[in-house]
Design a protein around this nucleic acid. Structure first.
Lengths: 185, 185
DNA sequence: TTATTCATGTAATTTGTTACATGATTCT
DNA sequence: AGAATCATGTAACAAATTACATGAATAA
């Protein structure tokens, strides 16, 4: 399971969609930090259909060509597990943001706990960088030192942002989970 | 030419090195934002040797196995061109930081102008995001809106950081360029 | 009827990582 | 001598992008 798979499950968790739909949705909503091409979306859908995480539905009303996928119980379980699971914050903001993007699928209380863990990760990474860059053999020049300091600033920003977000979660945060199957569009 | 090539040229611009050296240097200095594997370093060196950007030197004093590469005039030109050339800031911080890491190879005045352009890019991207996320069809939920706002905060942070850096460039910033050829280690 | 957009899918290519193979050199 | 590490290189694998092929549905 790769990030694309979870991203797709995340969109399907809000209701059945075609590969084409998913591509378009990504373009207008997540494209600043993550986007997938047809060349990964379609194969991913097929793979997940084979392993039972999604189900291909025949498209009653619409065109014969179009095929709509819905998420299964199992797919929902995998998705929610990923959403609340461990995160390697050093691997870039894409995974972090993707998970936050879909965090409306969790209850407010749980989303809060997850965000708290993320903030902790950022803080940990920050203090790790701090000590890691101390005992280096060579004295870095001005610009090299600057790139080391960038990390500290970035993770500090991240932590602040995450804590701020956690504090603002609306109590009744639209915990929209989709009906696991069916539903026209 | 990919980023790895320029990163390697950047290290060689400070003096001749082996592939092994470059790997070790990356591990201790740039690994927080960029690192390459042997599987890309060695092929890159060979490619650049074929196209005349680097020269494989025979390793007089050291072991027969070890092979040391030095940057050529042409390689230096390509490297400096990349260093001061256009940057797509939306493609993530790795390229930005890598270029700043090597910015000691430029004169202070020029480094200042380059940083100014980078800051401008960050500001432009920020205002682009601002207007881009306005006129969307669907109303995003709380978390989706949050990921959109993240971008604004991030680029604001980046701009501030870059402007701060520009203001602090030491006048006599070690414009260390290597002798184009030779030099023992 | 023609162009555009909807819609799916795949083949070629790119790019890189991981793991392994190989052997030289240095340290104990 | 044996272990560790220096040092180079490549084959297998992984993952994804780009471009293309195909054709249905819709708007002009």
């Amino acid at each position: 399971m790769k990030m694309t798979d979870y991203a797709i499950l995340g969109f399907l968790a809000r209701g059945p969609k075609s590969g084409y739909d998913i591509k378009r949705l990504m373009a207008v909503s997540t494209s600043h930090f993550y986007e997938a091409s047809y060349g990964s979306i379609y194969p991913s859908l097929e793979r997940m259909a084979r392993s039972g995480l999604v189900e291909a539905g025949r498209p009653e009303g619409s065109s014969r060509l179009r095929r709509s996928y819905s998420i299964t119980e199992e797919g929902m379980k995998a998705f929610l597990g990923w959403l609340a699971g461990p995160l390697d914050i050093a691997k870039g903001p894409a995974q972090l943001l993707l998970r936050i993007f879909f965090m409306g699928s969790l209850e407010s209380a749980e989303a809060g706990r997850v965000l708290e863990r993320f903030a902790k990760s950022a803080a940990d990474r920050r203090s790790w960088l701090e000590t890691a860059t101390e005992g280096l053999p060579e004295e870095p020049d001005f610009f090299q030192a600057a790139t080391a300091r960038f990390g500290l600033g970035y993770y500090a920003f991240l932590e602040t942002w995450l804590e701020g977000l956690r504090g603002e979660i609306p109590a009744k945060a639209a915990k929209k989970r989709a009906e696991t199957k069916g539903g026209r569009r």
